[in-house]
């Protein structure tokens, strides 16, 4: 069960209180009725589904009710940051910054540990 930092409640809260809401920073086309079928399919269906760093939306549905954005590694499931809705895509902390927060010798991805050992 994930622990998610809500940027509005300014607190880490249990995943139970949240609902995942898909990829972040996908703007609804302003001229939506004029776009082509391909553009519509792109807007409505195509998602990055990154293996690694992903930008996604969550809603603190059983908390403050706000939608917000998060940057997460989909392999380790670690959150790199969360930020309020409406803000532009935020750069993730650099490796040095991350290292300052997280103790060293931390495994980066689950992929690296599955099925074998060094």
């Amino acid at each position: 069960m994930l622990l998610i930092h809500c940027p509005y409640c300014e607190e880490d809260r249990s995943e139970l209180e949240f609902r995942w809401a898909g990829e972040a920073h996908i703007a609804r086309p302003e001229n939506i009725s004029a776009i082509t079928d391909e553009e519509f399919a792109e807007y409505f269906f195509l998602r990055n589904n990154e293996k690694g760093l992903t930008y996604e939306r969550w809603r603190h549905i059983h908390g403050c009710g706000r939608f917000f954005n998060a940057a997460r590694d989909t392999v380790s499931d670690r959150f790199l940051m969360t930020y309020k809705a409406g803000l532009a895509r935020q750069p993730v902390p650099t490796a040095e910054e991350a290292a300052a927060i997280i103790e060293d010798k931390t495994v980066e991805t689950w992929e690296a540990v599955e099925g074998d050992a060094r």
């Binding site: 994930l2 995943e15 990154e50 392999v75 499931d77 689950w110």
Partner: peptide, 13 residues
Amino acid sequence: DQYNSYSQTGGLQ
């Protein structure tokens, strides 16, 4: 689990 993940693991809930 509700979110995209490649982690082959998930929550107890």
